[in-house]
Design a protein around this nucleic acid. Structure first.
Lengths: 211, 211
DNA sequence: CAAAAATTGTTCAGAAATTGAACACTTTTT
DNA sequence: AAAAAGTGTTCAATTTCTGAACAATTTTTG
């Protein structure tokens, strides 16, 4: 059991629960919250070592802006002398997003579906890094106040869908990204994607990407 | 013309020339070398601002170890007080490689095929970052608004126009990754990918992934 | 503003890819 | 050593991809 205080932020309750289950077996204090708005208060009051932060919150937006926003809040606008380490987690392999995250102060980056061993290792490293950076002695004395997992709307039937790395998922995400890059220009996007415009169109229909 | 000394390292001469052609139009000094062994001597003698470093040297190896090796040489074992900024460049979106690169001191990460505007911008940023970090006298003089460092957050319409990977490239890379994860087990890999084993097999043939 | 150029939404038929099933082997587990 | 799982391959039905075409927008440009 590693002495560290972890805060998990993910609006998908199934994923949140899954992450919590994994981490509470490895770290002394693990708090899981689905509402990122609570981040500032929590890190101010709980001396969090590591925040595990999902990059994509609701509304179907998958561009990671939310994650970068909250990363900035934690790292640069928290008012803390020792802001927590932040490990970001996201569903699809957007390399630009990963690079931007780290350049803006993120400490590590994990993709779904995650490997539990790797997850624990990366969070441990992040906690250690923070301790070294701020020369903290050892575990913060705070008594255990653990398992404050608020189960707002927990549906057992919902399995963690985030663990799918199907080719079609990758395809859909990439198409969505390229469409965005092209400002919605199908002709340009199809060229970038290396497929015909007709095919792009039918894929968009299939994936529900028609605006 | 931006005052900065750029060193390009790429063993693919065609790519090297292409990069050189693009950058020499934007930076005052651009040196292109195909042999990474020359890196230590060059950065010692030439006061290089930015090294643009390919991650994959020869031998068909695509794991980026060479890039990380030379990154370490430049950043931690050069004996310089002010090591150059390092921008890494690689063929396909291995997010783990990108993350490792930045965690080990890389300043930015670019994928092929690159977008020239983005390339120049990122190298400019890296040069700027190095100047700021080491308080060098040479004031960069900011010729244009476009060359300024972007605001950390909320750079709205700017993020990555260069992520132009064809769908088939993405597919091939993902298949390769999943195959690796599955230890070469086609049946398992096909399930993870969400395609039939037959299809996976034919794709492997098409992409030259048959071991 | 209006002409020119580009893009869109759609259809069509041929080419190409995907699929599950089947089968004889080979490899791995138990 | 038997049982289970995986491999390489083929086959025919189904689905998807493709370039071409075309009228109706929308965007660019002079």
């Amino acid at each position: 059991m590693i002495q560290a205080r972890i805060l998990i932020i993910d609006d998908n309750v199934a994923v949140l629960k899954s992450l919590h289950l994994v981490l509470k077996g490895a770290f002394s204090t693990v708090v899981a919250v689905s509402d990122p708005q609570l981040i500032p208060a929590l890190i101010k009051e709980e001396n969090v070592d590591v925040v595990l932060l999902d990059m994509n919150f609701g509304r179907g937006k998958m561009d990671g802006k939310d994650g970068l926003f909250w990363l900035d809040r934690i790292k640069h606008r928290s008012g803390l002398d020792c802001p927590p380490a932040v490990v970001l987690i996201t569903a699809f392999g957007d390399i630009g997003l990963a690079v931007d995250s780290l350049k803006q102060g993120g400490d590590d980056f994990i993709q779904k579906p995650w490997d539990n061993t790797e997850l624990i290792q990366k969070i441990t490293e992040a906690a250690e890094k923070r301790r070294v950076a701020f020369s903290q002695p050892k575990a913060p004395a705070h008594p255990k106040e653990e398992d404050r997992l608020p189960h707002p709307i927990l549906k057992e039937g919902e399995t963690g869908k985030g663990n799918t790395a199907h080719l079609s998922d990758l395809e859909r995400e990439h198409i969505r990204k390229v469409l965005d890059e092209c400002g919605g220009n199908l002709t340009a996007a199809s060229k970038k994607l290396g497929i015909s415009r007709t095919t792009l169109y039918s894929k968009m229909k299939r994936y529900g990407l028609i605006p």
